[in-house]
Design a protein around this nucleic acid. Structure first.
Lengths: 210, 210
DNA sequence: CATTGGCAGTAACATTGGTTACAGATTTGG
DNA sequence: CCAAATCTGTAACCAATGTTACTGCCAATG
């Protein structure tokens, strides 16, 4: 494990902390689609993402979903942080967007390291900061953008995350994550294709000219 | 100052920390409508709210506003926290919703107290936690509710914050904060009045039967 | 290779919310 | 007290999005 830890967090954490993480952290590999966290569930450990991407989703009472943001390498789940500390239930769902590797930290260490290591405090604060900004981004999108702009933004983000010009998704899946209907997504995608921005295939969309 | 500090934070912070706050914090009273923070501005101090309410607003490039949430007594501004630590610009606007009193903490103390006082760490983490949850609430409203439900929720929140069944606002102001148009607000308010939920007057709305 | 199920395209329609325009009421300021 | 500004109500219309329904296409499977 020490190698992936060094590669991703070596520049962030001091030596002592890296050693502690190495000792108490457990390495974990999860496959694409794996549900890491469900709404209402309690959290027992804090994940440090070393590779891959995790999507964070919100759901209302009627089962309507909405994609909030993605976590990437070097990120941790701020929601989990607060859940750990407050012993509250998760407000969100987390699903592996790609295959991913992580290091799980037992929650008892959270408080201990916060006192002991400045770099840990900085990391935690920084994580919160990033997550709040991601949430603002999300709010901007929902509140200020039209569905076609949101869709395009979504496709670009998806492509960036997976480092692939081709997005492997059905229209229905996209509709869930944007909280709209399949028909609307099909309609707007067709318009984007007409504009030459994308190419549509069964189960996949290729980004062009962007 | 010591009295308002004790009343609001006495149960949260240990004695030593309270003393330090008392020494380095400066007391401040601000009137309703006072703009405490503008988008793009740098942050020099961290506010602890001891009375009143602050509204936090987001704006897009075209000047369209959106109310994110309110801060109340005992709260602090998590956005400010991250700005202090990261030395980044504010992403939001903060305006006093009512007359308010606060204690301003110089940002240098942030890191120092985070190391020294467990209760300070807890407070900061808790603040982040609360703010993330407020943001989730906001996202839920925008994403999952129709405008009439959002409007009603807004009125209730507004009433709760000011502890007053009467909301002193024009339809135009409400429209700004919900990011819609005056005509739409008037239309929906009229519907709510017909349903017997509110009573409309010039410059004010009275909540009934809720 | 025939059947089944999932996926995408499209039309027709309904609903929500945004826009424009104007009128009447009330307040404010000179 | 009069003129101007502000606030609200309302109608008519438009644009964006959501819904229903049906079609053909493709892929997997026995």
């Amino acid at each position: 494990m020490i190698q992936e830890l060094k590669d991703n967090y070596g520049h962030l954490f001091e030596e002592g902390l890296l050693n502690e993480i190495n000792q108490v952290g457990t390495f974990k590999e999860i496959p694409e689609g794996f549900k890491m966290m469900e709404i209402g569930q309690y959290v027992r450990a804090m994940p440090l993402l070393v590779s891959g991407a995790i999507k964070i989703l919100r759901e209302d009472g009627d089962g309507d979903e909405l994609l909030l943001y993605f976590l990437e390498k070097g990120d941790t789940c701020a929601m989990t942080l607060t859940c750990c500390l407050g012993q509250t239930k998760s407000e969100i769902r987390a699903i592996a967007e790609t295959d991913a590797k992580l290091i799980m930290i037992p929650i008892e260490k959270m408080e201990e390291w916060s006192e002991k290591y400045k770099s840990w405090r900085s990391f935690v604060f920084e994580s919160y900061h990033n997550r709040l900004n991601e949430m603002l981004e999300t709010i901007d999108s929902i509140a200020f953008l039209k569905m076609d702009e949101r869709l395009l933004k979504y496709l670009l983000e998806k492509s960036r995350i997976s480092n692939d010009k081709t997005i492997h998704n059905t229209h229905q899946q996209i509709a869930y994550e944007l909280h709209t209907s399949r028909v609307v997504v099909s309609r707007l995608l067709k318009k984007l294709e007409t504009l030459g921005k994308i190419e549509l295939h069964r189960n996949s969309i290729i980004l062009k000219d962007i």
